[in-house]
Design a protein around this nucleic acid. Sequence first.
DNA 1: TCTGGGGTCCTAGGACCC
DNA 2: TCTGGGGTCCTAGGACCC
Length: 423
Amino acid sequence: MKAIIDCNSFYAACERLFKPSLLGKPVVVLSNNDGCIVSRTDEAKALGIKMAGPYYEAKEILKQHQVAVFSSNYHLYGDISWRVMETLRRLCQDVEVYSVDEAFVDLEGIPVEEMWAFGLHLRNTVEQWTGIPVSVGIAPSKTLAKVANHIAKKNKVATQCTVALLTPEQIRHALENTPVGELWGVGSRSTEKLRYLGIDTGWKLRNMSREWAQKNLGGVVGVRLIRELNGEPCIDMKDPLEKKKMIATTRMFGKPVYTLPELKEAVATYTARAAEKLRRQFCAARVISVFVVTNDTGGAYNYDPRSRGTYTTLPMASSLSHVLIAHAMPLIEQLYREGSKYLKAGVMLSGIVPDNAIQCNLFEDPAGRHLHELMKAVDNVNFSMRNDMVKFAASGTRRNWKMRQEMRSKRFTTRWEELYEVK
DNA sequence: TCTGGGGTCCTAGGACCC
DNA sequence: TCTGGGGTCCTAGGACCC
């Protein structure tokens, strides 16, 4: 049996943690750049505020109902997430952190009749230790556990936020009442197709044949989905030590950028950030790609973004910020066209290898250890002090393009100077 | 005026090899 | 005039997730 533990309205719940006066009140959290709404409490949902809807469109309703609005505060959410996951690791042996607010756990060894009670125990302990409310879904496969979790979230009071689908009847009933589009792994494209074929519930999809899925539902992906719906676990628990295969840092600009120097500053900054992430997992990258998003054809009301990118392969994998920046600069110069209006830029690192297994190039001077020590020192300073306390000159100092975050709460748990104050 | 950021996995098709 | 069969590796792009 597998369980998924999913925090309820996670970002909004983190904000409430330090503003208890907001309990029972509508709260929303915005994406970077204060662009869209990415987290809503139940009270906000009840007002009809849409998930991932643009902030400016919802501004009126938000104001009208005095909804508390926050810019996203990733330092805070990251730290609270870590506390939730640590709690789960104390209570279960096999925990797979699936995202910032979700984890799968393997319930191997727990008797079926105690399953639900154990789920409730997880839920209560996490809430008691961290203050974050979660929902628990339990079932034979990850996909079915997700279905159970959905049901728990929709009926918080009746289920105590804990649902276990253990018998064939329970599973059938749950799937009959789940629209296909709500299933994990069925996105908008497949939903449209399935609806057209008259397959509108999870139960109908479960009863399709594997051959059919192979042909019509994305090959092996579809077959796996059908098997999972039949209670056959095919999506394994992932190894927590696995390293990322691609690392990206991309951002929308706070306001449009027109000049090459500004664009270069931004790309240098993102490259340095991506390199930091790379070093954190003790890896180096061989491929660096840069892309930009422009909006040229658009008039005032015409949002028509276009994306362009290019990449280069390094002679030798590297995790050194200045080396990666040096390779990124020609790429952005290549992409730049005068007169374009730039909305966004991004850097992606791939061809990732462990940094103790770098293939040396015959013609490249293997950089001395001291450069890696330098990077370590820079990372330490930046981690323990303010972000970017030490940075590369190419990253610029003016940073007109930096994102907007007008309503960010304090980083209560990760910065001494922002500790919560009790008067 | 204004619509996020960071990932994974899979497939098809081309280049190339013997 | 005729031109195989079986592979591997790589890339671009699609679909999906939170």
